[in-house]
Computed example of a mutant assay.
Amino acid sequence: MSMIGEYLRVTAAELDRAVQDPDWALDFVEQVQDAEEETEPAPAEARHFSTYKTWDMLRFLLARAEFPVNVIHGEVLFADDEDWGYGPPRYLLPERVRLAAEALRATSYGRLISGVDPAELTSAEVYPLGWSEPGVLEWGRPWYDGLTQFFEAAAKAEDAMLVWLD
């Protein structure tokens, strides 16, 4: 079983409903995931995005860069008695999505990995382990780029974001 970082863009009305009814939110997430699984929209057009197994690597790199928003785990717990895979879901308000989008755009992936020794990830027990391969830090680049595009589109639409690990 893999741990996957998951995101869903939601409108203000959808966020309100999700907070009030987490069961509805999980059903809604599954509907969007199923619909987009068939069409595979680009990150800038998608409502759902996954960082796949890179979530912990990105968490490590973003924390090292003192990133201003917790884009990996979300910031506000809204269903503490729910488990969406590996713990409860959280969300980011539209203003935090906007700040995250600006910071992602301003922080290139090259800058994130600059000066990082893969042994640091091994020492920190960053999931999924196996950081000894040459060029391993490049593994996260496509997901980081996609995450940046996803957040930029969400910010432009003034969307909030549901965040969870599945």
Rank of each mutant, 00 (worst) to 15 (best):
P118I: 01
P142D: 00
P43F: 11
Y109F: 13
W55V: 05
L162N: 07
R96K: 15
L58A: 05
W131D: 03
L129D: 00
M1P: 15
G140F: 03
E40W: 13
E133V: 01
G74Y: 07
L61D: 07
A18H: 09
Y52V: 08
V126R: 03
H48V: 12
V10R: 15
L62V: 08
E120F: 07
R9V: 12
S123V: 00
P128L: 05
D117S: 13
S50T: 15
Y7G: 15
D16N: 11
T11W: 12
Y91K: 05
R111P: 01
L162V: 09
L15S: 08
E95I: 05
T107L: 14
Y52K: 06
E30M: 14
T148R: 14
R47L: 14
P43Q: 11
Q31G: 04
P89L: 02
D23W: 00
E36W: 14
D81W: 04
A157M: 10
A18Y: 06
E102T: 14
A106I: 03
E158R: 12
V10W: 12
G115P: 09
W164R: 05
A155C: 06
L112T: 04
S132P: 04
V32T: 15
R90K: 06
F60T: 00
A103C: 13
Q33T: 14
W84A: 04
A100H: 11
D81I: 00
W164N: 06
L61K: 10
F60E: 03
F151K: 08
Y86V: 10
D56W: 01
L121M: 08
E158T: 09
V32S: 07
A154E: 08
P134M: 01
W143H: 02
G74L: 08
E6R: 11
S108P: 07
I72E: 01
L62A: 02
L92Y: 09
A160L: 10
L137F: 02
P128V: 03
L104R: 07
V71M: 07
A65N: 09
A46E: 11
L62E: 05
W143M: 01
A103S: 15
R111D: 12
A42I: 04
Y109T: 02
E102S: 14
D34G: 13
R98Q: 13
P94Q: 12
V136D: 00
K156S: 14
F60C: 04
V10T: 13
W164D: 05
T39F: 04
Y7I: 12
A155L: 07
R98H: 15
Q149N: 02
D21E: 11
W139V: 04
R141W: 03
R105W: 05
V19S: 07
R96P: 03
E6V: 01
L8D: 09
R47P: 11
D81S: 02
G110Y: 03
M1Y: 14
Y86T: 07
Y109W: 06
K53M: 06
P43W: 11
E66H: 13
D27G: 09
D34P: 01
G87Q: 04
A46D: 13
F151N: 07
P118R: 10
A154Y: 06
